[in-house]
Structures are given as C-alpha cells and as structure tokens.
Design a protein around this nucleic acid. Structure first.
Length: 288
DNA sequence: CTCCAGGCGCCTT
DNA sequence: AAGGCGCATGGA
C-alpha cells in the first residue's frame, strides 16, 4: 500500500453534510462542496461524490483507519434502521434524514465540547471551541492555500491554564468545569481509555463524577465518542419530541419518559435518538 | 430593552 | 424524590 494524500471510499446511505452538521461535532467547516475538519490530529477535507466519500489530507498517509473509524463507514445503516420500532414517528424521522450517521469522536474532545455545550446553541458552542483551539491548540500541517488549522488542545494543555484564560474564550461558568475535568484527566484520576471497556452503566457513572457532567452530557460522550449503541442523551429537544410524537395528549412524568427511552427503542436506541433529534430540529424553521 | 438558550449543581420542599 | 433557581454570554 503506497502513501497518498487523497482517497475515495465507497459508501451507501451516508449523508455526510447532515452527519457533520448535526450537533455531534462542532469543528467542521463547510468549504464550497466540501467539509474541512481535524481528525486524530490530521487536517482533512471531505466531499461526497456519487457513492463515495473523497478525503484529502495535508501529508500523504498509508493508513486510513483513523478516518473510516471516525466516520463509521463500515456501519450497516440499513440494518440499524431496520431494527428501529415501526411507528409513524420513527418512519417520518427516517424519511426526513436517512443517511444520518453517528460519528466516533475522540473522547477528550467530545467530553470537553459537551461540557461547553450546556445552555448554549450550536453556533455559540462552535464559537467557544474555535476560540479555545485558536488560542491553545497546536498548529497542524495544511495543504497550501488553506487557512491555518489547529488541533483541539489536549487535557494536559488545558490543565495548565488559569480559569481566567478559559473564561476569556467566552465559556462563562463552564470554565471551572472544563478546567477541573482537564485536571482529572491530566493527573490520571480519570482514565478516558479505560471508560471504553466498562459496561454502559459504569462508564456513565465514571463520567458523571466530573464536575459539569450530568446524565445528558455523559450520554452524549458515551454515544458520540465511545459508541455505546444504547446511550440515549435526553435534552429538552428530545424530551419535546418524545412528548409530542409518542404521548401527544398524555402527560407522562419525566421519569416515565426516561423509562420509555430505555425500553422502547431497542439496542440501537442512540441512533434512534439521533434521528428523532435531527427530525425535530429540522422539520420546523427558525430553531437550533 | 427583555428573554432565554440542546444543563448542571445546589438549595428548597 | 422532585422542583426551582443561579450561572455567563450573546443573539433574537
């Protein structure tokens, strides 16, 4: 296998734009007909053409597993969709966004990003993260003619910062949370690699110990970084979707709804959640 | 100007 | 156990 800086990957049922802009990851930038982002410390430009995803990198590489893994290209989406409950809401959601995928992100970047997400809209989260990377991320090689790119700052790097430096990135009351999380990881008190091997409930318990990380943020990380297929982040959007789509006239307690999410959607509940969320977010104008 | 956003943690009942 | 409130910031 020779090194190359561009490669095409055959894919089916892959909506690259919906996936990269769906609120799972916050650093992807549209660039004409392409998307520019950073994966595993590599600048990469992606575009969807016919039945392929075409990837360009800054420096030739031999191995592309970092990319196929991140994009979860091997995932059989049709199989997952076939396992969803067969009801009107799910059918509408699938119709609205077939091809939407779950990414497999770096745990630290994903955790940090979602700590910064609380009570913020997606655009604002993107702004905060852009500032953080611009100030504290390392420069990465980019092809000539492209804007400079920086890595997401490591936990070790952020652990050495002062809270005021984080506040200056406009993250407000989330600054001490991010700092404490970074320090937990930098000192080894929490080992993010170990979380991958735990059962779901234990993995969740580990993450929730971090300040600023509650059940919702923990489940985002479990789903978008670790790939726990039944992790099910419940935020106000999903709660609204569940009430409107499944209990239009009842008034179930939050408790009952949470139980519903744990039992109704099957082993790929996380995927089902992403479809419902995306459907809710896109079917009405002027939101999100 | 006021309101509130894809939560969390803490303080009340 | 369940519900209310403050938290920073910026955009509608």
């Amino acid at each position: 296998m020779t090194k190359s800086s561009e490669r095409a990957f055959a894919v089916q049922d892959y909506d690259l734009a919906a996936t990269l802009a769906s609120g799972q990851a916050f650093r992807w930038q549209p660039h004409q007909d392409s998307w520019v982002g950073i994966i595993s410390g590599r600048w990469v430009k992606l575009r969807h053409q016919n039945n392929s995803i075409i990837a360009q990198v800054a420096e030739p590489v031999q191995e592309w597993a970092w990319l196929t893994h991140y994009l979860q290209m091997e995932t059989d989406l049709a199989h997952i969709l076939a396992g969803f409950p067969d009801d009107a809401a799910m059918r509408s959601a699938i119709n609205a966004c077939r091809g939407l995928r779950l990414l497999r992100q770096d745990p630290w970047e994903c955790l940090a990003s979602f700590i910064l997400s609380s009570t913020k809209q997606i655009v604002q989260i993107q702004q905060i993260i852009a500032l953080l990377c611009q100030r504290f991320g390392d420069l990465l090689p980019v092809p000539s003619g492209h804007e400079p790119a920086r890595n997401f700052p490591s936990a070790a790097r952020i652990a050495l910062l002062a809270e005021s430096e984080l506040r200056d990135c406009k993250m407000g009351f989330r600054a001490p949370y991010l700092l404490a999380a970074a320090r937990s990881i930098a000192t080894g008190r929490l080992d993010l690699n170990r979380v991958a091997d735990l059962p779901l409930a234990e993995a969740r318990a580990e993450l929730v110990q971090l300040p600023g990380v509650g059940p919702k943020i923990a489940d985002c990380v479990l789903l978008f970084a670790y790939g726990f297929p039944s992790a099910f982040p419940v935020d106000v959007w999903v709660m609204k979707a569940l009430r409107e789509l499944y209990f239009p006239r009842g008034k179930p307690t939050r408790q009952k709804l949470l139980h519903f999410t744990e039992t109704y959607f099957g082993q790929n509940a996380g995927y089902a959640q992403q479809y419902l969320f995306h459907y809710m977010r896109t079917r009405r104008p002027a939101r999100g």
